[in-house]
Design a protein around this nucleic acid. Structure first.
Ligand SMILES: [Mn+2]
Ligand SMILES: [Mn+2]
Ligand SMILES: [Zn+2]
Ligand SMILES: [Zn+2]
Lengths: 159, 159
DNA sequence: ACCGTGAATGCAAATCGTTTGCAATTAGCC
DNA sequence: GGCTAATTGCAAACGATTTGCATTCACGGT
């Protein structure tokens, strides 16, 4: 791990829910903002916790025990989780929002490799070189610079 | 210019329409595919030709002499131009398709720096390092790999 | 210049992901 | 248990984009 954007060096790609926040943290964060720990939120949280790759609202909704909650509630829950910095939103090129649960203190910045045939997703450690990015910022007088970066190709199974 | 994805080294960022295709080429390409050179297509083409930065369908539509053509026609024209590889589509982070006219033979691969406050756009020469990308492809057994990359920050005027 | 024909267009309706208004329900605190 | 703000379901609204269809048009051949 030498991605310049991950100075703390935690890998957010451990299998399963390794490193990801657990229920108690969700409860904490919610209480702190006077928000309620509802069944829907717990269920959504647990689904994200099991996932290694970003999930769309619809995918999360599909995982939910049917009738458990409305799709609109899924959207609202993810907005809340994002605002609480417990999930990070990604766009894997199709304009559909997808979310990944974050480990506490991790800003979640990272990238993906997506198969354009089967939509398989692979987590990527590499990041755009920090000093190149700094050049860009300096040369143009920009501050608070960051980037979105996703890779596309054809996976072994689809070739 | 040393972007690994631009081996021919033409700058597609020259001011004005420098390097960009001209009308006759549009006419050629169209004839070659038995498509018609209509007023709407010429007008749209000319608007893109004057532009240094990517334009959305709505922006193009707004530039068009009012009543000149329907918004649906703008969408259809850009699909056609894209299929003819005369424009390249970008997504600058807001999920809205934007298009830039290409120079002949240029695949148009490049990136932008976008101000998150005023949406100003700057053309960027840097590209994700080729050998890093190759590592990613090889390690995961992917072929035909490419990437989408856009930078975001706060421009000098907005700071 | 005139025709025939497939291509292109305007218009309105449809699509898709997402958001929102509102009345009914519920979690958290006393 | 009761109060109250937060949350939810539901349906309608949204904005970007696409599409069906009847009409119009560009252009190669006459
Ligand atoms: Mn990821
Ligand atoms: Mn550009
Ligand atoms: Zn990065
Ligand atoms: Zn690049």
């Amino acid at each position: 791990m030498n991605c310049p954007e991950h100075p703390h060096g935690h890998s957010h790609h451990a299998a399963g829910a390794g490193g990801r926040a657990a229920l108690p943290e969700l409860a904490d964060q919610l209480r702190r903002k006077a928000r309620k720990l509802t069944g829907a939120r717990q269920a959504i949280f647990e689904i994200l916790r099991r996932q290694l790759h970003p999930l769309s609202n619809k995918e999360i909704f599909a995982e939910l025990p049917k009738g458990d909650c409305d799709l609109a509630t899924v959207y609202r829950s993810l907005h809340l989780l994002e605002e609480m910095r417990m999930v990070k939103r990604f766009d894997l090129g199709d304009g559909i929002a997808r979310y990944e649960l974050l480990a506490e203190g991790d800003d979640g910045h990272h990238h993906h490799l997506v198969c354009t045939r089967c939509t398989a997703v692979i987590e990527i450690e590499e990041c755009f070189p920090r000093e190149l990015e700094q050049n860009i910022a300096t040369r143009n007088g920009f501050t608070a610079i960051t980037h979105k970066l996703e890779f596309f190709g054809i996976c072994p199974r689809c070739q």
